[in-house]
Nucleic acid binder design. Structure first.
Lengths: 220, 220
DNA sequence: GAAATCCAGTTGACAGTGTCTACAAGGTTC
DNA sequence: GAACCTTGTAGACACTGTCAACTGGATTTC
């Protein structure tokens, strides 16, 4: 969505958001200030005020870019898995592996840019009562929700409301991403790889294709 | 552990930590500064430097208090449930309900003091490579880990490493607490109560006493 | 007992921050 | 051409963390 450096006459507003993303990636969330953004772009410290009412306003804008990017990553990850279950069984395709794929994409986004992820979800930084922010963050959730609905229509946890199931899965993977990014998980559970951690989360809460089909292929 | 206002000749260090907790509770994490703490205690702005090398140092100390309080709450919640399964079935007592109880206690701590919870787990604020901090945060996790071991010894997910299962459960409840405290969950999933949300999380990932015993009492 | 030392808190300074106001330059509109 | 609006500049203000110099009192040492 965010076409980058296509058009040369980029507006200052766009350049400020771009600079903010670069700062988040390079220095983390602590380095993101209105003045550092202005410095990076090469304008005076008061210039950003023409485009963002406050620092919170800039943060919300950058977070929105992050939400869109997250949503696209999840969509792409799901699309790489065939929509129809493959003849080799549900492990190879279909709706069930799409849920772990979506979760893995979520996690990869957080690990790839911890600063941006922190900005998007750090308590106290953003005001989720802001309507625009709520709308932007909704899209990624809807991706997950859609996959949950498909899995439920195929027989997984069909009696639980899909929105609640999607919320629980989101919380599960989000919690792991948060704890991992800040090092809290590694602090209490050292020598565990992120792959092992996420696999265990999936094993506990995501639909298990094997158990769903264990009447057909019990020993696989 | 933190005996409050027992001894009158409290040290300034203790009073600073106490003031920091009050500020977190009243104004949230944004209001916590070295100077605001000094003001509340009634000392000069430079006084805290005698007891804390930096603002991060004060934050770590306050977070440690939060970890201890969290650990005690979990312990207390578990202790209220009989250790031996009751004759009415596993729902009424024994190790399995202790896991949801621990999770619920964790969540209640976050909801009761969002500012302190944010301080304890906000990415970028704390350095979990700090040995003391890691040790303090370990205790609450160990509570959960112990309950997982008990549940596993009773037959729940016995093949998964207990540390990984405990980590996954922690991530699940921690994610819900984080998303709820900052309003992100409500933003995408309005009109859902925290009770419904947490019940769904438990239904997905926590051990289900009913399914474990459904050979005896299938329709309950 | 006097002197030296140390500790805890004060005070002032500095650079950095967000935000506000006044201002200037350039384009647009009537 | 004049009025106006937009956009960026420049300076000020209050706030922050951090540092160094200082002060007063308690403690230690001779």
């Amino acid at each position: 969505m965010a076409r980058e450096s296509n058009k040369d006459p980029e507006t200052l507003r766009d350049r400020l958001v771009e600079a903010a993303l670069e700062i988040l990636s390079a220095e983390g969330i602590e380095g993101l200030t209105l003045r550092s953004v202005a410095r990076r772009v090469g304008v005076s410290h008061g210039a950003p005020a023409r485009h963002f009412r406050s620092l919170s306003d800039l943060r919300a804008e950058v977070a929105a870019v992050g939400y869109r990017s997250l949503s696209e990553s999840i969509e792409k990850a799901c699309a790489q898995i065939p929509a129809e279950p493959s003849p080799d069984g549900p492990l190879e395709g279909g709706p069930f592996p799409r849920l772990p794929a979506a979760g893995r994409a979520y996690l990869d986004c957080a690990l790839a840019n911890p600063g941006l992820f922190a900005l998007m979800f750090r308590p106290g930084d953003l005001d989720f009562e802001n309507a625009s922010l709520a709308r932007d963050s909704q899209s990624a959730f809807n991706q997950l929700h859609e996959q949950v609905r498909i899995a439920q229509s195929a027989g997984w946890k069909p009696t639980h409301p899909s929105r609640l199931v999607a919320g629980a899965l989101w919380a599960s993977i989000h919690g792991l991403a948060t704890l991992w990014v800040q090092g809290a998980y590694q602090g209490v559970n050292p020598n565990v790889s992120i792959d092992e951690a996420v696999a265990t989360s999936f094993a506990l809460s995501a639909p298990d294709p094997v158990s769903l089909t264990d009447k057909e292929n019990e020993h696989e």
